[in-house]
Nucleic acid binder design. Sequence first.
DNA 1: CGGAGGGTTGATTCCCCTCAAAATCAGTGG
DNA 2: CCACTGATTTTGAGGGGAATCAACCCTCCG
Lengths: 201, 201
Amino acid sequence: MHQGQSRHAAYILAAGWACSYKLLDDGQKQIVDFQIPGDFLGLRSVLLQVSDHSIEPVTDIEVTEIRVQDLLDAFARTPRLATAVLWAASRDEAMVVEHLVGIGRRDAFQRMAHFLLELGERLTLVGLGSKAGYACPLTQYLLADALGLSAVHVNRVLRQLREAGMVTFRDGLVVFDNYDRLTDFAHFDPSYMDQIGPLLP
Amino acid sequence: MHQGQSRHAAYILAAGWACSYKLLDDGQKQIVDFQIPGDFLGLRSVLLQVSDHSIEPVTDIEVTEIRVQDLLDAFARTPRLATAVLWAASRDEAMVVEHLVGIGRRDAFQRMAHFLLELGERLTLVGLGSKAGYACPLTQYLLADALGLSAVHVNRVLRQLREAGMVTFRDGLVVFDNYDRLTDFAHFDPSYMDQIGPLLP
DNA sequence: CGGAGGGTTGATTCCCCTCAAAATCAGTGG
DNA sequence: CCACTGATTTTGAGGGGAATCAACCCTCCG
């Protein structure tokens, strides 16, 4: 899916990882978010009718297609579903906001630590991770484009976090060497993620 | 409205400016967005039941309160309204994403230029601005917290943009000295803002 | 075996921050 | 009328975090 496209469906990611990003005129890339199993793909593009961003697979993926018309029809029949989707969209926005704060006000180390922790939290919710660590197919280039850093600096930051005994990212595996010290260092507060659930009438 | 609060209403801003922001543990502030007349206030906080951010007036403001229950009841009676609100939420998220891209991948000059242009575009839509300029009550401190810069650097950037004959921000007034050159410089593409409107069943 | 993608490390440069100090202005009270 | 205060804007000097440039290594794969 690419920026500017219209007429496409939304999907739910069943397996694999994807990433949504925007391309700038000078060729730079800013990754907005990574999608893991269970996440919506392209919901906003459908609602706004024109995609304002691109989506790309990171690994091989499996998706379930949701046709726009079906979704809107379901809203009409089941208003509570509309509320639930609105809730899901709000939770997505909350994550983008947290990402914005990280890039705007945290240095590279806290930014990286916070990112790895948030990803771990999300993966734990769907049974793909724990406080020990998780499998992570992202390259250092992808991390750089997500965190607003250069790939070289990502490498340095990862090395220093590893040498500090807080977290090790190697061979597609994130291992939390000292979870508590890492959360402390990153000022990580997961409360903005584990939401109560949709507010239903 | 403050981070962590629950039980509050949503509002529509009738007059004045507000800003939504997050506070970090070390006291730094990241402004996520400014709200101008016509914008929703706190919609996400209501849907997620707990506010993940704070909202503060920038000027004196006038708001219209929307009670949560009324909103949800209206969704049940008028599904199209739910779709419309979902659309508005998506548009808000698109603006946050654009903000994220700006902070992640643009230097201070393009960031400032882009920000002033986007604000101008939004104000023009509600009749409070034009390609000539607009009244802007923001201080350089607020700009700094929004753009992820220091107030000192904001000042330098504004001076250089002024000396380059592109835009002048002085005494609460933004004047586009050369709109075309500024949009060119900032790679500003307003298409992500003037959306088609809600997709209705 | 050559090439591509990804990871690692060092040297240098530069953008932006921090610290510091004035200047300007609105309000406030003596 | 004027000193006094606080908020905001302005400008300078110096420092630091991250980018850029440039190698080199490894593994996988046709």
